[in-house]
């Protein structure tokens, strides 16, 4: 990673940073408006009501967000820790694309695995995820990946099911499902 070096040199505003600040402003506005519309700011005895805190904090976030946008537009300063997006301009495009593809694969497969928990069960589906990520994303030998996935399953089973007796879902692998058939 090549993070933006700390410098006070002014430069053009960064699009990603402006988008991030925009998101912050939108979140602040959503909470402030939601609070103002839906909840009383003060209770009958003038006590602090449920709407006050989100209204004040939301409005403050909008204000701070606008100040940040102004700061970015006017100075474009790249002080360390000022929300400087990681500078990826010097990167090899092919490598960047590869990294993005990998991140999307990892996140996508994890989301699919999470969605399959009720069907396939928590431990089986997560062990499958370990196997799939190791073999298909990381190109590790399948037998090694299988061993790692099985080891993960066994350790988690011993800790959560055998020792802590946590009621984890096993989906179609639940023996009760089969015994009823």
């Amino acid at each position: 990673m090549t993070a933006t070096p700390p410098t006070t040199t002014a430069r053009a505003p960064r699009r990603t940073v402006l988008i991030a600040y925009g998101v912050l402003i939108a979140i602040g506005a959503a909470f402030a408006v939601g609070a103002a519309v839906s909840y009383p700011l003060l209770l009958e005895n003038s006590q602090v009501g449920p709407g006050l805190m989100p209204l004040v904090a939301g409005s403050a976030l909008v204000l701070v967000g606008l100040l940040l946008v102004r700061q970015e537009l006017t100075t474009g300063s790249v002080l360390e820790g000022d929300g400087a997006a990681v500078d990826t301009s010097g990167e090899d495009i092919a490598k960047r694309r590869r990294t993005h593809r990998k991140l999307l694969s990892v996140m996508g497969l994890t989301v699919v695995a999470a969605a399959l928990i009720p069907v396939l069960g928590l431990l089986p589906v997560m062990s499958m995820l370990v196997f799939v990520l190791s073999v298909f994303v990381e190109r590790r030998p399948w037998w090694q990946a299988l061993l790692v996935a099985i080891a993960a399953f066994v350790v988690a089973y011993v800790i959560f099911v055998a020792v802590l007796m946590t009621p984890l879902p096993f989906g179609i692998f639940n023996p009760d499902v089969w015994s009823r058939l």
């Binding site: 990892v106 994890t110 695995a113 999470a114 928990i117 928590l122 431990l123 997560m126 062990s127 995820l129 370990v130 990520l133 190791s134 990381e138 590790r140 090694q144 990946a145 790692v148 993960a152 988690a156 959560f160 802590l164 946590t166 009621p167 984890l168």
Partner: peptide, 21 residues
Amino acid sequence: YSYLYPLIIFTSIVGAYTVAN
């Protein structure tokens, strides 16, 4: 790391699930 990160995902999600089941 190619084995480590799938295991971190495994631990994180299994751990998170068990907080509230």
